[in-house]
Design a protein around this nucleic acid. Sequence first.
DNA 1: GCAAAAGTGTTACAATTACACCCATGT
DNA 2: ACATGGGTGTAATTGTAACACTTTTGC
Lengths: 224, 224
Amino acid sequence: MQQSIRLTVDAVVFGYEAGSISVLLIKRKYEPFKGEWAIPGGFVLNDESLEEAVERELKEETGIKINYLEQLYTFGKPKRDPRNRVVSVAYFGLIKPSAFKIFASTDAEEVQWFKIDELPKLSFDHEEILNMAITRLQSKITYEPVGFELLDTKFPFSDLEKLYTTLLGRAIDRRNFRKKILGLNILDQLDEKVSKGSGRPANLFKFNKKKYFKLKDEGILFDI
Amino acid sequence: MQQSIRLTVDAVVFGYEAGSISVLLIKRKYEPFKGEWAIPGGFVLNDESLEEAVERELKEETGIKINYLEQLYTFGKPKRDPRNRVVSVAYFGLIKPSAFKIFASTDAEEVQWFKIDELPKLSFDHEEILNMAITRLQSKITYEPVGFELLDTKFPFSDLEKLYTTLLGRAIDRRNFRKKILGLNILDQLDEKVSKGSGRPANLFKFNKKKYFKLKDEGILFDI
DNA sequence: GCAAAAGTGTTACAATTACACCCATGT
DNA sequence: ACATGGGTGTAATTGTAACACTTTTGC
């Protein structure tokens, strides 16, 4: 019997705003699961790579262009799509929500950011995919400096600290955290301050990728 | 245009014997790359899961039944197979070579263990897959006790030590290593000794999965 | 009795944790 | 002057790394 498996890519895209981690979801315009929420994604075309497919689908369905993207896992249980055999290569992306205006089109009737503790019911096995992505994000930020992908280019140190507190789900010691991160010397301190209305204005910092890669080449690892 | 992508699974299977890490390869019986060496694998059937597909292909082509198996990565560049568009979900497996007699059949003309520093030229993008698997194995043994999957059920401590020395590619301090592993209390010391011809006979140990999972549940991590 | 591998403790050093007060600004 | 968040150092504890001799067996 001729193989008749169809291949899709799906992307779990995380954003961070106002102290919460959110995921970008679409409301499906077509069957199956018409009208229900799902992770954005779609079929891979014959002549495009998997990464090209994810980027294209994200652009089409939600309007965003992703900066940080990595493969998460491939889901292939025979019955995960009720109609046909569909295998999905799931990706994991990080963006700064403030940098994009999301809008629905093609297969999406609506696009929306959902806080990860206020998720709607999801189509297919997308809840499983999302849970795996959350776990991956939580462990990833401890050994690679991916947190910066979620923050503005210039950020006060407290934003980074809050991001880690939120993602790890526990308090962290401010002094020790600051000592550790600044001690790595992968942040540039800017001659710029920002005030949040009340309290002492905070210095702005910028993640320095060059310095980070140099450290990495020397075998010094990021580790929180 | 109708999607015409075919899906395969491939498995990088590692074994450890006589102080060397080896990989199981097959010599291809059919085109493309007929007569060349490749990672075992093949097309996923319509009604089987990806894991079932890998296990079936391994059994068919090499005769082995795998114990430890995890998904590695999905490779999907448009031209990775010169004839058709083929996307491959690669897996990563560990076995004790002594436990199986390998034999070629179906798509394989020959099966053979190759030491990872004496590899032949490989078909498709299998060299890339294999390199990723080696990297994964090296990092994996530092944070999960997968090394035991490569050793006999009962083993002298020095075997474990040699395995780590080999995999990490550097000397490790015998005393500190022993202290650390035994300190975790995930090994059972048996009332049995084994002699390697010369020198003092060694005590045999056994990995205790229950104890390990209990520790893991308590949040205590394996970490070398 | 000697060659060969197994087994074992202590000390120095590095990293991590715990912890509390002053500073700069807006109102 | 007070409320709010930003910024900072030190000491105790813990974990890691370095290091060499004794024991048990086979020949």
